[in-house]
Design a protein around this nucleic acid. Structure first.
Lengths: 212, 212
DNA sequence: GTCTATAAATCGATAGAC
DNA sequence: GTCTATCGATTTATAGAC
């Protein structure tokens, strides 16, 4: 059965999104024109509107799908017992997941301000959901006396900022392997929030004295 | 002596830059038009070109002047003795300086990609110069056995990412005072790189045994 | 020093041929 | 499904009146 010439709806759609992702990451949403995206795909500008109602939806769909993918992946990640191991799992997961999708991560937080209000709010809710996963770990660690954190919310944001920073310099063929970067960052995250051993000993000592 | 009506070269110039800063920070360089900037200043679009040769220079001047201000301010900062205290000084300086100029900090790293190649390179050199100030502290601390850092360059970037993150959520009238945010972040930075006491004891013990 | 007017290019999005 | 052509709005930047 002969196929109609130029009928590629099933593959052109994803190619449009891939081109938009690439160009938004490289030059910024506002600086990229629909004609540039079309050229990257290899079609004319008008053809793009078969796959997206407008430019804004193109951006929103990319960001929403990415955040959903993060949330699903963390949900599916196997969690060890105890806040200390969970923090390491989270740090390594975050680094790995983000380094495997550098462009999506980049636009997910560079282009938030180019979302229309409703879309912005929707993304904000998903982001907070992800932050809550980390804050939950910190809270449990704090309750169990394993972490020494001044403010779990602030610390959550500080750790995520630190982990996100990796995307701004990491190069897959660079000096450091992904596994090593994962280790260094998760070590730093752990050390930044763990209860120091001397403090823990002092705490136990005081508890013992109070019991006498 | 009568002053010519509408002659405000001395004050309009800074007002143009202030308006550009405000709008670039709020909406992004590419999304802001010269007409919007002119409206913010209260003049017509054509008048802007008395104060800048083009839109690109307006952005570059803002970013370059900001980076120069950072470098000068760190140069002028009083440095204590020893890497541990210096790291705290750096952390507190960075947090304070950046929170006092949220818009400049924001565009300084959101709008880098909108710089033309030569301008981009110039900014990159200034940024590396600032990073080197922190890396120098980490290196000295590492040499003196006070820090336990896997890789000084990577750690430098991780710490700066963490400290920069504060600008994305801090509100002057929020729950936490500037002094408290400074303390929490500098504590986290210190803990993330400091040699743990037990490790330091072990190191001294081994050195002693080796000497016997 | 600021204005109005405008040039020349480009933008997002649509209409209609094939 | 893709193309060409185009509308209408907007862009940066300049020219010239005042």
């Amino acid at each position: 059965m002969a196929r109609k010439t130029g009928s590629h709806s099933d593959i052109t759609g994803p190619r449009v999104r891939a081109a938009a992702l690439k160009l938004f990451a490289a030059h910024g949403f506002a600086a990229v024109s629909m004609r540039q995206i079309a050229a990257e795909v290899g079609v004319q500008a008008g053809a793009l509107y078969l796959y997206t109602p407008d430019k804004q939806s193109l951006l929103f769909d990319l960001l929403r799908d990415h955040m959903q993918e993060v949330l699903d992946a963390w949900e599916a990640e196997e969690k060890p017992e105890g806040p200390v191991a969970q923090l390491e799992t989270f740090s390594r997961f975050h680094i790995r997941f983000h380094l495997e999708r550098p462009e999506k991560v980049f636009i997910s937080y560079m282009e938030l301000r180019n979302l229309e209000p409703d879309n912005f709010e929707a993304l904000g809710q998903m982001r907070r959901q992800y932050e809550n996963a980390l804050e939950g770990i910190l809270k449990r660690g704090q309750d169990e006396g394993l972490f020494d954190v001044d403010d779990t919310k602030l610390t959550t944001l500080a750790l995520i900022s630190m982990l996100n920073g990796v995307t701004s310099w990491y190069k897959p063929d660079g000096r450091l392997s992904l596994a090593r970067v994962e280790s260094i960052y998760s070590d730093m995250a752990g050390k930044a929030v763990r209860m120091p051993r001397w403090k823990e000993r002092q705490r136990k000592l005081e508890a013992k004295q109070a019991a006498e």
